[in-house]
Design a protein around this nucleic acid. Structure first.
Length: 721
DNA sequence: TTGTTCCAGCTTTTT
DNA sequence: GCTGGAACAA
């Protein structure tokens, strides 16, 4: 009995209800900051301690490795057990595990390898070229997107009927050819992992039965982000069992553009008729004013399940709104605020600058750098995505599987060894004609003896190198294998020749790769006796490594709104709230997409614990052009009572070029750049430029409602605000 | 083979 | 307007 109490006594009523409900399907609508991970962790704890389930009877699925790791850690802390062997992982990670265990039934070779989107794009690029398809009409990126979208819906090329439209027909042709290459090379992309795992369960009664019996309870985090195939897979696993426990928030669904189906959340209710819904609405993160603003904003969305966050921790400060003159001024303002925060004893790591698109980070980085403020930008290249690391991995992969075309392409002439473009073209041609791998085609070419001695020797040199490395690596520890590759592939020598510090960093990264191999916990991902190298390679693809460095320094955090989901900060800057930027231009004409943008804004607001500062600029340089965006509609959707406007116009930078010489510089007393004014007809606006003198004096004003206007000062009746 | 020039593209991102 | 990739010249 003590156990039960310790599991739920720290919870609020709704959380307690969710945790201790009898085992059946449950839908937990968990608002931002309402303790959803807590509920998930305690629920699993409850099932083990009170319902008597074994950790082997539990499956928990997340979207990111980070979330999976955190959940495992928290379960271990809560129950004081080792959850090492518990199936907690990402959709892709779990799917991968299933496919490894049942490779044969999944119709995959034992040595199949997972490729990341970079590998995938390279394959498609090459494929488009080799089929002589016009890559301006059928851009590889778009083709990749198409293929992944089909797979996310569970549609294979063979399921599609031959379209009449020429564009679609070629698209389908590419999809088909792509599938063929993957099959031949033993390569599986991310979407394929999910699709295969679904087909595995669907087509193999015994396998399905086994896992249905094993997993007495299935838990899903961030359910609103599941796509069609993920949900279909979950349904198979829980078919007729009424044991699916999902946690989600329809108001935080921001991944519709990559296939997430918010509808899954609605459909859940009819698919699991016996389910219970519990709403978690008490928020433990933000102040009242922040929550009320967020609630008001999200209420503008029509398609919602309905939820209202509340807190009992008081209203806190109002939300601040700053109208910057331009993006420079915006960054300047933010950095000044940060300095003040730090001077008052605040930590930099409690601060986040959130923006809609990555390009916006630059202004802030420059200003932060200029003031010597440590910062960290999220979302760059990750460790396993680095060129040199991928090259080394490609050597390992082709050693493990000679038919891996993607790896072959990558390293056959890296570092350069005289296998030029012409020769590679020949190899590709032969491979395509005979439907064999590039490796096999190379062997064939050499055997045919039709190559020039120089080309033949170069190619043979490569094949021999890989074979020799394979021999030498046999029986060695993973760490030694990686070291062997790094040393003998010639990569290090090549990088040594690179000038500057670049080459040095590359070599350091290769050393780090060997280190990662040494630290690789083989057992963790491996319940069976799978090949250690293959598991390491899969690990590299599935967890590209969130090591971003400088974790220990106290840094200001810069990231997109998307990557901020799930995080919280005492002080949040929500920048660039302008039409066209946020909501983004491409989303403004479609209601559904606009609602997703609004949810994104909601996510941004609810990241803030104590203080939220929103900014927008009157003018912004975008794609090299000066733009004068209107304030974001989201600003008007937050009731004015929660907002306080900040006005300091000390430092206006840009207009040196726009404003002519000193004679037309803003005059003291009357109108200044950035001055807010009111026009009897056009309403409120801000002065952007001034020119001329006396009766000829004109000002350019950006009006909130009607946009840019040049007005003659002698005629226009302007009221200074 | 390497350095240079030219040209398209340009939300959001995990796996 | 900048960036990264591809085509081109030496």
């Amino acid at each position: 009995m003590d156990k039960n109490i310790s599991l739920i006594d720290s919870l609020n009523d709704a959380q307690r209800l969710a945790v201790s409900a009898p085992n059946r399907s449950m839908l937990i609508l968990a608002g931002a900051g309402s303790g959803k991970t807590r509920v998930l962790v305690h629920r699993i704890g409850w099932q083990i301690q009170v319902e008597g389930l074994s950790i082997h009877n539990i499956l928990a699925v997340t979207f990111t490795n980070k979330a999976a790791k955190e959940m495992r850690g928290r379960i271990e802390d809560l129950l004081n057990i080792s959850a090492h062997s518990m199936w907690i992982g990402t959709f892709h990670g779990i799917a991968h595990r299933l496919l490894r265990r049942h490779a044969k039934q999944a119709k995959l070779p034992d040595t199949f390898q997972v490729m990341d989107s970079d590998d995938q794009l390279r394959i498609i690029k090459r494929l488009v070229k080799s089929l002589n398809i016009d890559d301006t009409k059928w851009p590889p990126k778009q083709m990749m997107w198409f293929i992944n979208a089909q797979k996310d819906e569970g549609i294979r090329a063979r399921h599609m009927i031959e379209p009449n439209d020429i564009f679609q027909r070629v698209q389908l042709q590419i999809y088909k050819a792509y599938e063929a290459i993957c099959d031949r090379s033993g390569l599986v992309d991310f979407a394929e992992l999910l699709l295969r795992a679904h087909e595995l369960l669907r087509d193999n009664e015994d396998v399905l039965q086994f896992y249905q019996d094993r997993f007495k309870q299935v838990h899903v985090d961030e359910f609103q982000d599941t796509n069609t195939i993920q949900y279909a897979w979950l349904r198979l696993l829980t078919e007729g069992r009424d044991n699916l426990f999902v946690v989600g928030d329809d108001d935080q669904s921001i991944y519709g553009w990559r296939g997430a189906k918010i509808e899954n959340l609605y459909n859940f209710q009819s698919h699991y008729p016996n389910h219970q819904v519990i709403k978690l609405e008490q928020n433990y993160r933000s102040t009242g004013n922040i929550l009320k603003s967020a609630n008001a904003l999200i209420a503008k969305n029509d398609s919602r399940m309905g939820k209202e966050l509340w807190t009992d921790s008081g209203d806190g400060e109002l939300i601040s709104l700053y109208t910057a003159f331009n993006e420079q001024d915006e960054a300047y303002f933010v950095v000044e605020k940060i300095r003040k925060w730090v001077a008052d004893g605040g930590l930099r790591q409690d601060i986040a600058i959130l923006y809609r698109s990555n390009a916006q980070s630059r202004q802030f980085e420059e200003k932060l750098m200029a003031t010597g403020t440590p910062y960290r930008v999220y979302g760059g290249l990750r460790f396993f995505e680095r060129m040199e690391v991928k090259n080394a991995l490609a050597y390992l992969r082709i050693m493990s599987n000679h038919n891996d075309d993607a790896s072959f392409e990558r390293v056959v002439n890296t570092p350069t060894r005289g296998v030029g473009a012409k020769l590679i073209d020949n190899i590709r041609l032969l491979a395509r004609e005979n439907e064999i791998s590039l490796w096999q085609a190379s062997v064939e070419l050499i055997n045919q003896n039709k190559l020039t001695p120089r080309a033949g020797n170069a190619l043979k040199g490569f094949l021999d190198l890989i074979k020799r490395l394979g021999e030498e690596a046999k029986g060695k520890e993973l760490f030694d294998k990686v070291k062997l590759i790094v040393e003998k592939s010639g990569l290090v020598e090549a990088y040594k020749k690179e000038k500057g510090e670049k080459g040095e960093t590359r070599i350091e990264n290769l050393e780090e790769l060997a280190n990662a191999a040494r630290l690789f916990d083989f057992d963790e991902d491996n319940e069976e006796n799978l090949n250690e190298l293959d598991m390491f390679l899969a690990h590299a693809a599935l967890e590209s490594g969130d090591m971003q460095g400088d974790d220990y320094e106290d840094c200001v955090q810069l990231m997109t709104l998307h990557s901020a989901k799930g995080l919280e900060f005492k002080l949040v800057f929500l920048v660039g709230l302008e039409e066209g930027l946020f909501p983004s231009q491409q989303s403004t004409d479609d209601v559904g997409r606009l609602e997703e943008e609004r949810r994104l804004c909601y996510v941004g607001i609810t990241r803030a614990m104590e203080q939220l500062i929103i900014t927008h600029a009157e003018s912004r340089r975008l794609y090299g052009k000066e733009t004068y965006p209107r304030p974001s509609r989201f600003l008007k959707e937050i009731p004015a009572e929660f907002i306080q406007e900040i006005r300091i116009r000390a430092n206006v930078t840009r207009p040196v070029a726009a404003v002519k010489k000193s004679s037309s510089l803003p005059q003291a007393g009357t109108y200044r750049l950035g001055q807010r004014v009111k026009h009897i007809k056009f309403g409120e606006g801000v002065v952007l430029q001034m020119e001329g003198e006396g009766a000829q004096e004109r000002v350019q004003i950006n009006f909130q409602n009607v946009g840019l206007k040049w007005l003659m000062l002698s005629y226009a009746k302007l009221e200074v605000l």
